[in-house]
Amino acid sequence: MTSSFPTARATSTSGAPGCGDDGGVSTPVPPLVAACRQEPVTRTPVWFMRQAGRSLPEYKRVREGVPMLQACTTPDLVTEITMQPVRRYGVDGAVLYSDIVLPLKAAGVDLDIVPGTGPVVAKPVRTAADVDALPELHPDQLEPVAQAVRQLVGELGEVPLIGFAGAPFTLASYLVEGGPSKDHAATKTFIHTDPGLWRALADKLARTSATFLQVQVENGARVVQLFDSWAGALCLADYRAHAMPASASVLAAVGALRGADGQPVPRIHFGVGTGELLGAMGEAGADVVGVDYRVSLRDAAVRARADGTRRALQGNLDPALLGAPPAVLEAAVDAVLDDAAAAVGSPTAGGHVFNLGHGVPPTTDPDSLLRVVERVHERTSR
């Protein structure tokens, strides 16, 4: 197969020529990986959070009668569901079908994903004894995930697999609240009542998230995303003091790993309602800062690079616009691309990954997502 991807030259560390006649070895770099690294791309890459599942009729067929966590630990089912949006839309990345609480379940935490509610924890974590009792996650407990990743890498070919994990604050919020929460009041009370115990909990969960990502990378994931879904509940000072250190630990652990190409695996950091936190989330160790739909990419670029480090951006079409008429949706896509061009430069310069500002709504018409992919590729391909 002839690749349309740009190529990167690999040379030996000793300075000797590589294997190619031109003194180097050319290997294809997928647009998603290149954009995350802020390298030139043939087009702006696009993928969607929650692209695997919910809105797809083929997903509903294969998931019928199968509980969520069972589906996430059945390698053949994970492979099929992850591949579905790649086949249907031609997206530039396949995000592993899983759930952020899966590593907690794999480690032995008593929880379940209740349809219509979300993750529910049997015994909320509130005391030092509760924190001590939380089991550590070991790589061998994730063998179904590792097998699914290996299968996917074999099927995806040039399309990179995106691994992901929940950030420690978000995982902790589920454990402390006992399930989903609108205000995360119990979590914030915990933080300020006993900061030392909170840090112990966050550090333990950082090891859990790092292990989950490590298994995915070691088996072939080429990009990772750390979801701090509920970090937007924190003010900047509290985020820096009580959430950022544990997330930084996770991102540093991934930064020490190398992918199959011998290069560091790009790290995306995303949260919902985190406009005031973008700078700190970048400083935590992100190569790419995910931006929700509440902040323009132009403003996000300034905030994410406030420390002087140039970071790539991901985002940020409002998911609600997927339900708009085609002409309205196309105009919204164009507006995001124009915003991105102002923030990071030419579409082919790299540095922007097109995505939604949150996940795909379950009522989305799949044809709307196809229109988005086609429009992004049409507007940005060289």
Rank of each mutant, 00 (worst) to 15 (best):
K60S: 03
S14K: 05
L297W: 07
L201Y: 09
A172N: 10
L175V: 06
V46N: 04
G350W: 04
A306K: 07
A341M: 04
G108M: 12
Q141M: 04
L234K: 07
P31M: 11
A34Y: 06
I162N: 12
A335P: 05
L104H: 10
F212H: 14
A106K: 12
H358S: 06
S296P: 12
E378A: 15
T211A: 08
T7E: 11
D183P: 01
V376S: 01
P115L: 10
G345N: 06
T73D: 02
L56V: 03
L317E: 04
T2H: 14
S3V: 09
V25H: 13
A341N: 00
L251Y: 02
A107C: 10
G359P: 07
R50V: 11
S26G: 08
E80G: 02
V217Q: 08
S173C: 13
D334G: 13
F190M: 06
M281S: 04
Q84W: 09
L297N: 05
L356W: 06
F270E: 01
K188G: 01
V145G: 01
A34V: 02
G65H: 08
S346I: 00
D112L: 05
D99I: 07
V372K: 09
V295R: 09
D99K: 13
T27I: 14
K188D: 00
T208E: 07
G24S: 15
G178E: 12
G357D: 03
F164Q: 05
A312L: 07
V114W: 12
A284T: 02
G271I: 08
L137Y: 01
G108H: 12
A312V: 03
A71H: 10
D140G: 00
L251E: 06
V254L: 07
D76K: 11
L156Y: 14
P366I: 05
A148G: 01
A221I: 04
I81M: 14
P40A: 03
E330Q: 15
R54T: 00
Y59V: 02
F5L: 02
L236N: 09
V360C: 09
E80S: 10
G157V: 13
R303H: 13
V29P: 02
Q151E: 12
L137I: 06
V91I: 15
T27R: 15
T44K: 06
V344W: 02
P180W: 11
G23S: 08
V295N: 06
R258Q: 05
H184Y: 14
T117C: 00
L104G: 02
F164T: 03
Y239P: 03
A71G: 07
Q263L: 15
L236G: 00
P245Y: 06
P17M: 11
N219D: 10
Y239I: 03
Q263Y: 00
Q51R: 08
P103M: 09
L142A: 01
L197V: 04
V125M: 06
P195E: 10
V302I: 13
V86Q: 15
A304Q: 10
G315K: 08
G196H: 11
R258Y: 09
T127S: 15
T44D: 02
P326Y: 05
A284K: 08
L77N: 12
A129F: 07
S55T: 02
G93H: 11
G163P: 09
T11N: 03
Y239G: 00
G23N: 08
P40H: 10
L156C: 09
F354P: 05
A52F: 02
T189C: 01
C19G: 11
V217Y: 05
G220N: 09
A94R: 14
P85Q: 05
L161P: 13
L171M: 14
D228Y: 00
Y59P: 04
